[in-house]
Design a protein around this nucleic acid. Structure first.
Lengths: 196, 196
DNA sequence: TCTTTTTCCTACTATTCAGATAGGGTTTAG
DNA sequence: CTAAACCCTATCTGAATAGTAGGAAAAAGA
């Protein structure tokens, strides 16, 4: 039931790009992402290529280039990323909705294991398909602010004479709070503290 | 997020042993399990060895030998089996309660991905640690009876002159129904039909 | 134009693991 | 004594995981 390192790195990078966006930074380089997250740079580079090919990010080549999210963070679900990098979320092929595969058991309809694993699948997708990058970004920023820690990717490389586009630094995030209703545990484990 | 074949086979075999017990059959041979579930016999043999070493089953050697559950089915949770065969249930080491492992990220306390994966872990363990072999056996037998299908492992090899110990064939199963409350989906997806 | 910094692209590698298969040895019932 | 079971160890193949390496192409700025 593991998430691969590749999947983990991809998500961390995408979350970082979401944070960068929220903090007014348009582009982030692979090396900076790798530095911050302690990921092997060349490995992350490959991953970013794949994320680009899949349409999750857009690259800007050349000096002062980098990556940014291809869509609003609220439109990229965690589930979509994990499925792309690591394949189906279902623990067993015969309960996957997106990539069904017949299993070897003689009678799927009366297979107790299948029934159980279907619920595991639903539990997993219920979380990963419900939450998106914006949700994770929002909660991360809240925690950082609560503890008065410096936000990452703060106003980098302000070229002399060029005014940094200040995008929505203090806006209340892009994700609607309906999604963050107390579903037990989840990110909303943290939300009660702020839910006034 | 996959369950390995080995894990799948182990669970199927254990569930079968639970069914056999419930139907009055004390011992089941590897070949019979493998036949029924379409599992390579030699591979399953290995797995049964490991399950024996782990204390899930007891073997009887020699002619007319076989395997049986070492404990009541209600005392063997699915989670325990999966953990034994496939390792921790958590999708990422830093959210595992039973096998915590520090991850590479610089600040676990403010890692949004970690918060999310913690909820995934809880969702998975919430199912796999809540339900046990008896629950799965119960539901499987119900489905088979509902559809008037023959129960597997029915009264095998009645040695002449020896009366088969008829253990609890029609008893209401060993698991208490408190556990099977409608948790949304799960095995209890099927229960409403019977929950009068 | 030249240099620097970035992404882009391809190939390679090392190790582990999944999923078995093979071939006997040992025990027990009859 | 034999058949039918478990017991034990070794081996194998292919794929996946988790990277490394090295340079080509592009863009910005001097």
């Amino acid at each position: 039931m593991k998430l691969s390192k590749k999947g983990e790195y991809a998500l961390r990078a995408l979350i970082d790009l979401g944070i960068a966006r929220e903090v007014g930074r348009e582009l982030v380089q692979v090396t900076e992402l790798a530095d911050k997250e302690l990921i092997p740079a060349k490995f992350l580079e490959q991953i970013m290529q794949e994320l680009k090919a899949a349409g999750f990010v857009i690259a800007q080549r050349g000096k002062f280039g980098g990556y940014r999210l291809a869509r609003p963070a609220a439109e990229i679900t965690i589930g979509a990323v994990v499925r792309f990098v690591d394949g189906p979320l279902a623990p067993i092929g015969c309960v996957s909705h997106t990539a069904y595969e017949k299993c070897s058991c003689p009678d799927e309809e009366h297979c107790g294991l299948r029934m159980l694993m279907l619920d595991v699948r639903n539990a997993i997708t219920g979380i990963l398909d419900r939450y998106n990058l914006a949700d994770v970004v929002e909660v991360t920023l809240r925690k950082l602010r609560r503890d008065s820690l410096p936000l990452p990717f703060a106003a980098a490389r302000p070229k002399p004479g060029v005014r940094v586009k200040r995008v929505a630094v203090s806006r209340r995030s892009t994700s609607n709070s309906r999604r963050l209703a107390p579903v037990e545990g989840l990110i909303s484990e943290l939300l009660p503290e702020y839910a006034i």
